[in-house]
Deep mutational scan, measured.
Amino acid sequence: KELVLALYDYQEKSPREVTMKKGDILTLLNSTNKDWWKVEVADRQGFVPAAYVKKL
C-alpha cells in the first residue's frame, strides 16, 4: 500500500474529510482526483487536499 506524508495540519470541514497533523503518515487509498486524495488515518477514511500531502 502507498503512504503519504502530511505536509501541513488540516482540519476537516465536512464528514467526508479527515483531520491530519503535519508529519502524520497516512495510507493513500485513491489519488485519481488531482485536488482531493482519499486517505486512511486512525481507522477513518476520508479526503484531504492533495497539495497538503506528499507521496513517500
Score class of each variant (00 low, 15 high):
56 L>W: 09
32 T>R: 11
54 K>H: 11
14 S>Q: 08
28 L>M: 03
11 Q>G: 08
12 E>P: 14
5 L>G: 02
9 D>R: 04
25 I>Y: 06
18 V>Y: 04
38 K>V: 14
40 E>H: 07
23 G>Y: 05
25 I>T: 07
49 P>N: 03
30 N>F: 07
24 D>F: 06
36 W>G: 01
32 T>I: 09
42 A>T: 10
41 V>D: 13
21 K>C: 12
8 Y>V: 11
7 L>Q: 04
18 V>M: 13
51 A>Q: 12
33 N>A: 09
35 D>P: 02
21 K>S: 09
18 V>C: 10
56 L>A: 05
8 Y>C: 14
48 V>Y: 00
56 L>E: 04
24 D>V: 06
55 K>S: 08
56 L>F: 11
1 K>E: 09
15 P>I: 10
39 V>C: 05
48 V>N: 01
31 S>C: 12
44 R>S: 05
40 E>P: 00
11 Q>N: 13
6 A>F: 02
21 K>R: 13
13 K>P: 05
16 R>A: 12
55 K>E: 06
29 L>N: 03
20 M>I: 14
31 S>D: 15
3 L>W: 14
15 P>Q: 10
32 T>N: 13
24 D>T: 08
29 L>F: 04
46 G>T: 02
6 A>Y: 01
9 D>P: 06
53 V>S: 01
1 K>M: 12
7 L>V: 07
31 S>T: 09
26 L>H: 03
29 L>G: 01
51 A>H: 13
19 T>C: 07
49 P>A: 03
27 T>M: 12
46 G>F: 08
47 F>A: 03
47 F>L: 09
22 K>C: 08
16 R>Q: 13
56 L>R: 03
43 D>C: 13
4 V>C: 13
7 L>A: 04
44 R>W: 04
50 A>K: 06
14 S>D: 12
20 M>H: 01
7 L>N: 03
9 D>A: 07
4 V>H: 03
3 L>F: 15
16 R>L: 14
32 T>W: 10
18 V>D: 00
14 S>Y: 07
23 G>T: 02
36 W>C: 07
40 E>M: 11
13 K>W: 05
49 P>R: 04
13 K>G: 08
54 K>Y: 11
24 D>Y: 06
38 K>I: 14
2 E>V: 14
16 R>N: 13
8 Y>A: 11
56 L>M: 10
6 A>Q: 01
33 N>H: 12
25 I>F: 06
24 D>I: 05
27 T>P: 15
20 M>D: 01
34 K>L: 11
48 V>F: 02
1 K>A: 11
41 V>K: 15
25 I>R: 05
23 G>D: 06
26 L>V: 07
5 L>Y: 11
39 V>F: 00
53 V>K: 00
51 A>G: 12
18 V>L: 15
26 L>P: 01
53 V>P: 00
45 Q>F: 08
23 G>P: 00
11 Q>W: 13
42 A>N: 14
23 G>R: 03
7 L>I: 10
29 L>S: 03
4 V>W: 07
20 M>T: 03
53 V>W: 01
27 T>Y: 12
22 K>N: 04
19 T>Q: 05
30 N>H: 08
15 P>D: 12
46 G>E: 01
34 K>S: 12
13 K>L: 09
52 Y>A: 11
17 E>L: 06
48 V>P: 00
45 Q>A: 13
45 Q>L: 08
7 L>H: 03
50 A>Q: 07
14 S>T: 13
49 P>D: 02
5 L>C: 10
44 R>N: 06
45 Q>W: 08
33 N>D: 15
33 N>Y: 09
20 M>Y: 02
24 D>M: 15
25 I>W: 05
40 E>A: 11
7 L>W: 04
28 L>P: 01
38 K>S: 07
9 D>H: 06
37 W>G: 00
15 P>R: 11
11 Q>R: 11
54 K>F: 11
6 A>L: 02
56 L>T: 06
41 V>N: 15
40 E>N: 06
31 S>K: 07
18 V>K: 01
18 V>H: 03
22 K>V: 07
55 K>V: 12
34 K>F: 08
25 I>M: 06
16 R>W: 15
25 I>K: 05
27 T>C: 11
43 D>Y: 11
34 K>D: 11
31 S>V: 07
36 W>P: 01
2 E>K: 10
46 G>R: 02
18 V>T: 06
11 Q>P: 06
52 Y>L: 12
35 D>S: 13
22 K>D: 02
41 V>S: 15
46 G>L: 05
12 E>N: 08
45 Q>G: 07
37 W>P: 00
10 Y>V: 01
17 E>T: 09
29 L>Q: 04
41 V>R: 15
46 G>D: 00
32 T>K: 12
46 G>P: 01
13 K>M: 13
3 L>V: 08
43 D>Q: 11
34 K>H: 12
5 L>K: 08
32 T>F: 10
48 V>G: 01
27 T>I: 15
10 Y>K: 00
3 L>S: 08
1 K>N: 10
9 D>Y: 04
38 K>Q: 13
15 P>L: 10
4 V>K: 00
1 K>H: 12
55 K>I: 14
27 T>G: 10
35 D>I: 15
56 L>S: 04
26 L>K: 01
37 W>I: 05
34 K>M: 11
51 A>D: 09
7 L>T: 05
31 S>H: 09
2 E>C: 15
12 E>T: 08
13 K>A: 11
55 K>A: 08
43 D>K: 09
37 W>S: 02
14 S>F: 07
9 D>M: 04
51 A>E: 10
13 K>H: 09
9 D>Q: 04
49 P>I: 04
55 K>N: 07
50 A>N: 03
45 Q>P: 06
8 Y>I: 09
5 L>W: 07
42 A>Y: 14
50 A>M: 05
40 E>D: 07
6 A>N: 00
36 W>L: 04
38 K>D: 04
53 V>Y: 02
21 K>N: 08
11 Q>K: 13
55 K>Q: 08
13 K>E: 08
42 A>G: 15
28 L>A: 02
11 Q>E: 15
26 L>S: 02
44 R>H: 07
22 K>L: 05
35 D>R: 15
37 W>L: 04
56 L>G: 03
8 Y>K: 15
15 P>E: 12
5 L>E: 11
46 G>Y: 05
21 K>I: 08
54 K>A: 13
21 K>G: 05
23 G>A: 03
33 N>C: 11
37 W>N: 01
19 T>I: 02
2 E>L: 12
12 E>D: 05
21 K>T: 09
16 R>S: 13
51 A>R: 15
43 D>N: 14
38 K>R: 11
42 A>V: 11
44 R>T: 06
12 E>Q: 13
24 D>E: 11
37 W>E: 01
48 V>S: 01
8 Y>E: 10
7 L>G: 02
20 M>Q: 02
14 S>G: 13
55 K>Y: 10
50 A>T: 06
48 V>Q: 00
55 K>D: 04
32 T>S: 15
14 S>I: 04
47 F>W: 15
51 A>L: 12
30 N>W: 08
1 K>I: 12
45 Q>Y: 08
48 V>D: 02
34 K>G: 09
10 Y>M: 01
42 A>H: 15
38 K>H: 11
28 L>V: 06
54 K>V: 15
30 N>Y: 07
50 A>H: 04
13 K>Q: 15
15 P>M: 10
10 Y>S: 00
25 I>G: 00
22 K>Q: 10
42 A>F: 15
4 V>Q: 01
33 N>R: 10
20 M>N: 00
30 N>Q: 10
38 K>P: 01
33 N>W: 08
4 V>L: 10
54 K>L: 14
27 T>H: 10
7 L>M: 09
26 L>R: 02
53 V>E: 01
15 P>T: 10
54 K>S: 11
8 Y>G: 06
39 V>R: 00
50 A>S: 14
25 I>N: 02
33 N>S: 11
53 V>L: 15
19 T>W: 05
35 D>W: 15
23 G>V: 02
52 Y>R: 06
35 D>A: 12
12 E>R: 14
21 K>W: 11
49 P>L: 05
17 E>P: 05
48 V>W: 02
